[in-house]
Design a protein around this nucleic acid. Structure first.
Lengths: 168, 168
DNA sequence: AATATCTTTCATTTATTTTTGAAAGTTTAA
DNA sequence: TTAAACTTTCAAAAATAAATGAAAGATATT
């Protein structure tokens, strides 16, 4: 396989995976493009490589900055902005986990906590089923949460090393 | 808060979380409804509770069966099909993890493996960056994969218990 | 302060996903 | 075998999400 073909395949695969996990396909593709680029790229480069509009490229790049996955760079003597992706995959995984936890998990954990407190007739099967399910899910969600907190602080080698050690 | 209101809130929250993670909102809502229902429900019940069409209810229920999250039940002397949700949240989490791994992670890991093998000019920065990023991601994905395999076999208490032990 | 270069915005358009509901299909029972 | 009860299908409609591109907004340069 040629490098050019391989690049396209990677960008495509990353975009597909992203879209399956609720991340805009284009955003995942732009991220993929920058990930495998040794140089920082301009908006024009991104537009050309992926055949997308200026508006789309601009918004997507801003979003990626919001996720902490890329950063702006300025070259001396040039006005154009360049974009460069964080290359350490463990850092990437942590950033994504961190953001999604903050944006999606935390709010739902809060609601689950409230729903756990709802009082009702302990003889009512509907209430019992509700309370029991919500309590269980709340507990699991909190466990996931704690595990994520740990992961956010951990080094990759330590994290996976420790997990594999106890489970081998 | 009333039970009725709490139920709605739970269904809404579950639907939102699902849609943020690439799972059809209605499917997540139907799942939520069945999760907190002590009794198995019919298609009619689901249609009424969530105000959705027959076609939608039918397809969604079939999908949920495909995910291993609900099952059909038959009551003696009745023709109607009833649907009942698995209530053990750890089993639910495992089923979802299992399916998503199979549907989404495994294919991408396969592609990454292939891309890791792509040969090129070791002096070319573009090739070096590509190879290095792809290799790193491939390694991380395989670690995630192994961790999921472990989780799929584990008991919840053992899984989280062990993780907390080493990270406290 | 006028111009050139680059970035951002956002009303429209386009594409994708989801839902509907009527019709067709299936199964049971009289 | 007919009809009633229930389930599934799928083309069309509706809802949602994403992309476009021209215009407006910045910022630096002459």
């Amino acid at each position: 396989m040629e490098l050019a073909e391989a690049k396209l395949k990677f960008i495509e695969a990353w975009g597909k995976l992203g879209s399956e996990w609720g991340i805009n396909r284009t955003m995942a593709q732009v991220h993929a493009l920058l990930l495998i680029s040794p140089e920082a790229l301009t908006t024009e480069d991104v537009m050309a490589e992926l055949s997308i509009s200026r508006g789309n490229a601009n918004m997507t790049l801003r979003d990626l900055i919001g996720w902490g996955l890329i950063e702006k760079q300025h070259k001396t003597g040039e006005r154009k902005e360049y974009f460069y992706a964080e290359k350490d995959t463990w850092v990437i995984a942590r950033r994504v986990a961190e953001e999604r936890k903050k944006r999606e998990l935390d709010p739902v954990i809060k609601i689950l906590g409230q729903l756990t407190e709802v009082k009702g007739d302990k003889k009512d099967p509907a209430f019992k089923a509700f309370h029991s399910s919500v309590t269980d899910i709340s507990r699991l969600a909190n466990n996931v949460n704690k595990t994520l907190d740990t992961m956010l602080k951990a080094e990759e080698s330590w994290f996976f090393g420790s997990i594999f050690k106890i489970f081998k």
